[in-house]
Design a protein around this nucleic acid. Sequence first.
DNA 1: ATGCCTGCAAAAAATTTGCAAATGC
DNA 2: GCATTTGCAAATTTTTTGCAGGCAT
Lengths: 144, 144
Amino acid sequence: MNEHRNLKNAGLKVTHPRVRILSLFRTSEARHLSAEEVFQQLVLQQSRIGLATVYRVLMQLEEAGVLRRSSFSFNKAVVFELNEKKHHDHLICLRCGRTDEFYDAIIERQQKAVADSFGYTLSDHQLELYGYCAHCAAERAEKS
Amino acid sequence: MNEHRNLKNAGLKVTHPRVRILSLFRTSEARHLSAEEVFQQLVLQQSRIGLATVYRVLMQLEEAGVLRRSSFSFNKAVVFELNEKKHHDHLICLRCGRTDEFYDAIIERQQKAVADSFGYTLSDHQLELYGYCAHCAAERAEKS
DNA sequence: ATGCCTGCAAAAAATTTGCAAATGC
DNA sequence: GCATTTGCAAATTTTTTGCAGGCAT
């Protein structure tokens, strides 16, 4: 029930939809969920919740820094994930959809260097690597 | 009128909408355009064109490698830009929307290294740095 | 008690599809 | 001439907004 403290800290009232949604991200197999997916899951859990509320709560949780938003280039819907203390970026398989997370100090440092060289004050970034995971790369090789 | 050769090479028939759209990307002040923006521009040019056609053509040009698609995290609509030979990533100002392009060999190399270490075959990536350009950073500083 | 929150319905925004007519080769 | 492509309209998908009532503090 850590969700309560989390919401309080974010300056948000502890309501049913908020607790449920936050809890879902904590327990869900999939790390990345779209508004529609969150809605579907909650409906499965017998929650009487509106899709509009899901959108509103996701936005609030993002503003509060609890969730992080990403828009993957092959997906038209935006997805969210828990915003964990340690930042990471994504590696995504174009064939099976598998996603891995990585953190690379050199890339992070260079991003800062690039921003500096353009006179920008860096505040955030979005990096996704697209390719084929070992398994899918092998299957693709067979076909040729 | 280089557009003709371009379309031919891409294996696409040289039609009015395709030429117009490609030409727009070549001459437009803004490098990044959404389907709606392309449509608006063509309407201004007196073209009798449908929004659906714009979507279809943009998709075809992307598949042909003539355009490149990006989804910026703060924008719900997808944008396209000319896919120039030399790859680059984006630096975007959160306040004024200014976008700069950069290419950083170290980042590119590290991306490959990261993918390799996870057993992925890298085929593409999307990287955007968000922050405040020199001008906007200064204005923000004043307010405090 | 009272102001923030929610569900529902409806609107808006973004994208896709069906189809008859128009057009490129 | 004939397959491809287009414009229009309608359907989908994704997200936002208005509002009357509900709930947390």
